[in-house]
Simulated assay, not measured.
Amino acid sequence: MAQRRVVDERAGRDGLRERKKARTRNGIRREALRLFREQGYQATTMEQIARAADVAPSTLFRYFPTKDDLARLSDYHALGPRVVELFEALPAGGDVLTDLRAVLRAAVAELPEDERRARAERDVLVATVPELWAANLGLVGEGARVLRDLIARRTGRSPRDAAVRSLAGAVVGVCVQALADCADRPDADPVEAVDEALGALRAGLEL
Rank of each mutant, 00 (worst) to 15 (best):
R25M: 12
N26D: 15
R29K: 14
R29M: 12
R29Y: 04
R30T: 14
E31W: 03
E31G: 03
F36Q: 10
F36W: 13
R37Q: 14
Q39K: 15
Y41H: 13
Y41M: 04
Q42V: 13
Q42I: 08
A43V: 04
T44A: 10
T45P: 05
T45V: 01
M46D: 04
M46Q: 10
I49Q: 00
R51F: 07
A53L: 06
V55N: 04
A56S: 15
P57M: 11
P57F: 03
P57C: 03
P57L: 09
S58C: 03
T59V: 10
T59M: 00
L60R: 01
L60C: 02
F61D: 00
R62H: 13
Y63F: 15
Y63D: 05
P65V: 07
T66D: 12
D69T: 10
D69S: 14
R72G: 01
L73E: 00
S74N: 11
Y76H: 13
H77S: 05
A78R: 13
A78G: 09
A78E: 15
G80L: 14
V83P: 00
V84Y: 00
L86G: 05
L86V: 09
L86W: 06
E88N: 08
E88G: 07
A89Y: 07
L90H: 10
L90S: 08
A92K: 12
G93M: 12
G93S: 06
G94D: 04
G94T: 09
G94L: 09
D95Y: 05
L97Q: 01
L97K: 01
D99K: 13
L100Q: 06
R101I: 15
A102C: 08
A102M: 11
A102N: 10
V103I: 02
L104Y: 13
R105T: 08
A106G: 00
A107L: 02
A107P: 01
V108M: 13
A109P: 06
A109I: 04
A109T: 06
E110G: 07
L111K: 03
P112K: 05
E113F: 10
E113K: 08
R116M: 00
R116H: 10
R117Q: 14
A118D: 13
A120W: 10
E121K: 07
V124P: 02
L125M: 07
V126D: 03
P130H: 02
P130T: 03
L132T: 05
L132R: 06
W133L: 14
A134T: 12
A135Y: 03
A135Q: 01
A135M: 07
A135E: 04
A135F: 03
L137S: 10
G138Y: 04
E142W: 12
G143P: 05
A144C: 12
R145L: 14
L147H: 02
I151P: 07
A152P: 08
R154A: 15
R154G: 01
T155C: 08
T155D: 02
G156K: 12
G156F: 10
A162T: 13
R165Y: 05
S166L: 15
A168L: 03
A168V: 08
A168P: 01
A170D: 12
V172N: 07
